[in-house]
């Protein structure tokens, strides 16, 4: 057989194999209940409130504790180091596939407008590239991945270290008919580990200057607009930052950034809740890392958040709706 025909044959067989694996992986990724994107798409959810943001809310807000105070049914959709671009995709996928929630708690911190803290993780959305909004954001945020994604399987192969295990886990979830994620309310904090882990160290460089990213601010605006178009009440919030870190010596332009967020909140007629005066901020004993609270402190904060919600929106759900 001619060598050129052999090459064509090898290319075709490889293409078919990779295409087949792509279909299989797409299917099993969507079955993975631990992936928040797949969970919100696959399950018919009807939460009253959603928490959205990056790792600070992902590790710091316990919807179960919040619900115990407010009587609501909420879920934490925040993800590790997820930028507003990711938050926008997440909200979009949720609203496309589930009834509209009443409230959206959107994390707004100086860190969330700074690219050094939050980035875009294209692999989390690889199975949803058929969606126009997802595709357009992925193209802007990770153009190299996007270029490769047109080759067979490359939308998964490009970041296969992040994908292969999740697909296998999806297969396991499908086989076991699993319906709930491992972190049932979306709080991604392993209880046993956090209760015991002592505070490590402040990972901020002293006098760290935040850098405002206009693209992230644009995504933020789009999230707000998307939520408002659906009639969702948005509450901006910042999780408690320990006193040592919020000191101007440590973060000289933090105040300026908070003022910017205040202005954005005013412009959009949103509430911006901060917890600078919370007792939790007084001691590093409540923290296991620079920005994240230990599990008992997470429960306290989530209840504190619930109390504040009750104060401002009323404790009785039926009355709130009136």
């Amino acid at each position: 057989m001619n060598n050129l025909i052999r090459i064509a044959l090898a290319g075709s067989i490889s293409g078919v194999i990779l295409f087949g694996v792509e279909k299989l992986v797409t299917h099993y990724l969507k079955e993975n209940k631990n992936s928040k994107t797949s969970y919100v798409v696959a399950a018919n959810l009807s939460y009253d409130a959603l928490f959205l943001g990056h790792c600070m809310p992902a590790f710091t807000v316990s919807p179960n504790a919040f619900d115990s105070v407010t009587g609501m049914n909420s879920f934490n959709l925040a993800q590790l180091e997820a930028s507003y671009a990711e938050n926008l995709i997440m909200l979009h996928l949720y609203l496309m596939n589930n009834p509209t929630p009443e409230y959206l708690f959107l994390s707004a911190t100086p860190e969330s407008f700074d690219r050094n803290f939050n980035d875009f993780h294209a692999y989390r959305y690889a199975q949803f590239l058929d969606d126009t909004l997802v595709r357009s954001i992925v193209e802007l945020e990770d153009p190299e991945f996007y270029r490769w994604s047109f080759l067979p399987y490359m939308k998964f192969g490009f970041y296969n270290s992040e994908i292969s295990f999740n697909a296998l886990q999806g297969w396991k979830h499908k086989r076991n008919n699993r319906s709930k994620p491992y972190f049932t309310d979306g709080l991604e904090l392993p209880k046993d580990e956090l209760g015991n882990r002592p505070f490590e160290k402040l990972s901020y460089a002293k006098a760290y200057q935040f850098t405002w990213d206009e693209t992230l601010a644009e995504y933020f605006d789009r999230i707000v607009k998307m939520a408002q178009d659906h009639g969702i009440t948005i509450i901006l919030f910042e999780t408690p930052l320990n006193k040592e870190l919020s000191n101007p010596d440590m973060l000289p332009n933090r105040k300026e950034y908070l003022s910017r967020i205040d202005s954005i909140a005013d412009k959009n007629k949103l509430r911006f809740w901060r917890f600078d005066e919370s007792e939790l901020t007084e001691s590093l004993e409540n923290y296991y890392s620079t920005l994240n609270l230990k599990y008992p402190a997470v429960l306290r904060f989530s209840k504190e958040l619930g109390e504040r919600f009750k104060e401002e929106y009323g404790g009785d759900r039926t009355k709130r709706n009136e």
């Binding site: 060598n3 052999r6 090898a10 290319g11 067989i13 990779l18 399987y153 296969n160 292969s164």
Partner: peptide, 23 residues
């Protein structure tokens, strides 16, 4: 070999696709 080894080529291409690091 002066003959294209179809099996090896497929193995190479599929391995690159499934397990490669491209960055």
């Amino acid at each position: 070999s002066n003959k294209i080894r179809v099996g090896l080529m497929v193995l190479f291409m599929v391995s690159i696709g499934l397990f490669g690091v491209f960055t």
